[in-house]
Design a protein around this nucleic acid. Structure first.
Lengths: 146, 146
DNA sequence: CGAAAATACTTGAGGAGGTCAAGTAAACAA
DNA sequence: TTGTTTACTTGACCTCCTCAAGTATTTTCG
């Protein structure tokens, strides 16, 4: 134990803490989505729709079977939060686009993740920057192997 | 922009990075569990069973309805990874206990989260300690409001 | 004590998310 | 042109999840 460094955590402790934070953030997201009658999966899809995305692209982003996306988009389209548009360049493709209402709802969902926002607000600028830098380093290797 | 501090991230950037890390870790966990024929929910339950836990306790930990736990434990019990034991003090209660095989499997699942382990290995001791300290500060406020 | 309320669990109905197998339509390659 | 690959949908089937209802037990309290 050093006198200047904080306690060195075991890898297991760090892993569990990371999991706990991930779970808390996910619940915060799911709760915010639920206030608008959305499941977390539906909200997740909506969150990807900055521009038009083909069905196949959504399946890739969600890491799931294409047939699964059909149902999810069906339900979102049923609520007019999303539209299927034919792709002009390839008639096999359907591009999914968020409607104005869809964009508005996902904006609010993000905004209303209060537990997460509140927690991040407890960090000052330097701490945020440090955390960001460390997490940024974890990102690549975590997404690679998976 | 300071010359000595790393780039100060916006809250949105930090939020999204946190989400990306959480997603990656979750996928790593789910993939490891799948190698043993477990769904991520089943693995999550198994991970809680350090000692005997009543059905109701599991529902509380998972933040879900008690009736949901019945099915999950049914399937785990069907594979002999878990046992239901009557509680000696309260005959309404059934305590769920991991079997030796159940404990062994969840041990391996944790061990085989390679993306996560690999990523954490890229941090030195001081960095781990810093990350741990920062995340530890986020934990309380994130879990509270949720 | 004994009746009423609360608690622990299960069951059944039904929705959402997920996979796989098979089918259609369009694009592409030889 | 014929065969292969690609994008999407459908249908069967599973798990997860919730709600409503029912049973067994414990607790509370008049």
């Amino acid at each position: 134990m050093s006198a200047t460094t904080p306690q060195a955590p075991t890898k297991l402790q760090l892993l569990e803490l990371l999991a706990a934070i991930g779970t808390a953030q996910w619940r915060d997201f799911a709760a915010a989505a639920a206030r608008y009658g959305l499941t977390s999966t539906q909200a997740r899809v909506l969150a990807q729709l900055d521009g038009p995305v083909p069905m196949r692209g959504l399946a890739t982003l969600l890491v799931c079977d294409a047939s699964n996306v059909t149902g999810i988009v069906d339900r979102l389209e049923g609520r007019a939060l999303v539209r299927r548009e034919p792709d002009p360049a390839d008639r096999r493709v359907k591009n999914v686009v968020a409607t104005d209402e869809g964009r508005e709802i996902i904006r609010r969902v993000r905004e209303e993740m209060q537990a997460t926002h509140g927690a991040l607000d407890t960090l000052d600028e330097a701490e945020s920057a440090t955390l960001y830098a460390l997490l940024e380093r974890l990102r690549r290797p975590m997404e690679k192997d998976a």
